[in-house]
Computed example of a mutant assay.
Amino acid sequence: MGIPKRQREIEGRHAYVDGIRYVMPINSWEASAMIAAFPCDYDAAAALLPDAYVHPFRYFGRALLVVTVIDYRQTDIGSYIEYSIAIACTKGRDKAPPLLPALFMKSFGTGQFVVDLPVSSEVSVKGGRGIWGMPKHQANLDFKTGLSWVSSQYDLDGRMVSRFDVRRPKKVWAPVNMGATNYCQFRGMIYRSFIYFKGKAGVHLMHPDSARFILGDHPNADPIRALEHRPTPLFAAFIPDVQGVLDDYFDCWFVTPNDLPEKPLGAGLEVTYPLGYSEDWLKPPQRDATFDLDKE
């Protein structure tokens, strides 16, 4: 699925939302990305999803933890890194059958529910959370490319949350021209947004030691640790040169649990209106000096 016709039709038009200016479409034209999907505990994954017609994708009795890091070097709001930790999911009143949603993605609303989404810059937080409902927050991030590994680390408050490594494929050959659906919770609602990618990827399929997702001792890692993800990913990929378009269209609906909530269902507008428009990054995370990106 390529970029929708509407995004091409509005090319060159202007938007000004929450004090942020955009030249349409909202795109990135110089970026690198890495992604991997790790089988994980289904019940633990379901516990992280709100009661809002969103269910974990079922893969042989397990769910899938999807980790994606994108190094955006050229965008309408400057450069930043985006580090996504998500659960592959479907949309509907009932759980979808196993595996079929991977083939019929539109019919089952196949996408990912974003659990945590640290980014480098404040303006990315303000736009991503305030407009699209993404759970963005500023953190210490990096994106490093070596001869053998591509790696990104996520620190917060001086402690490591996680480190994500993907082994560099020998060849980058697989064409990527697809869309992805993100589900996020904000203001007691589910926001569904759409992004489109184009590039060429190097891919590993069910290959041991093709990717590593290492959790640290920061409390933000605890919900992810409960997923007990398997070390061998279903797939892992590195896209050294990728172009992306974030759709200006999104939709949303209420989170509707059976029981009366005792407190607000997640963060609200109070977390976005005080934010400014800085493109500055926090200092890089504190790396393990023994990890060599060039060593097999």
Rank of each mutant, 00 (worst) to 15 (best):
G92M: 08
M134D: 12
R167H: 05
Y80L: 01
V54H: 08
M178R: 07
K171C: 05
V161W: 02
S79Y: 01
K200L: 13
A139P: 07
P97Y: 03
L141Q: 09
L147Y: 02
V114G: 03
G12Q: 08
P50L: 10
V119F: 06
F57L: 15
K91H: 15
R58S: 13
M206P: 00
N140I: 02
D259W: 10
P56W: 04
Y277I: 12
R58D: 11
F104C: 12
S148H: 14
D217I: 02
R192W: 05
E270T: 05
D209Q: 10
Q153E: 09
P135M: 03
S162Q: 02
F143P: 04
R287D: 03
F213H: 11
T181M: 01
W29I: 02
W132A: 06
A267M: 14
P50C: 09
T256E: 15
R212V: 02
D280L: 14
L215Y: 06
D217A: 08
V123E: 06
D209W: 04
A86D: 13
S28N: 12
D251Q: 12
R225C: 01
M24T: 14
R192S: 03
E30A: 13
I70S: 11
R187G: 03
G133K: 09
V17H: 02
W29S: 10
M34T: 04
Y42K: 12
Y249C: 10
A33M: 15
L49N: 05
M160K: 11
P285W: 08
V255Y: 01
D222V: 13
D241P: 00
Q74D: 14
D116V: 00
P98Q: 02
I87M: 09
D71N: 15
G109W: 07
L265Q: 14
D157N: 13
L205N: 10
Y16L: 11
V125N: 08
S107I: 12
P223I: 10
D18W: 11
E9N: 13
V166L: 00
Y191G: 10
R62K: 15
P223G: 07
S278N: 03
T90P: 09
M160C: 07
L282K: 15
I214R: 11
D142V: 05
E228S: 15
F291R: 02
H55T: 12
R8F: 14
M1Q: 09
P50K: 09
F291A: 01
E296S: 07
T75S: 15
V245M: 09
A102C: 00
S148M: 14
K295S: 15
V271T: 15
K5T: 13
I195T: 13
C40H: 06
I26Y: 00
V203L: 12
T145N: 06
F164M: 05
E11V: 04
V161S: 02
P233R: 04
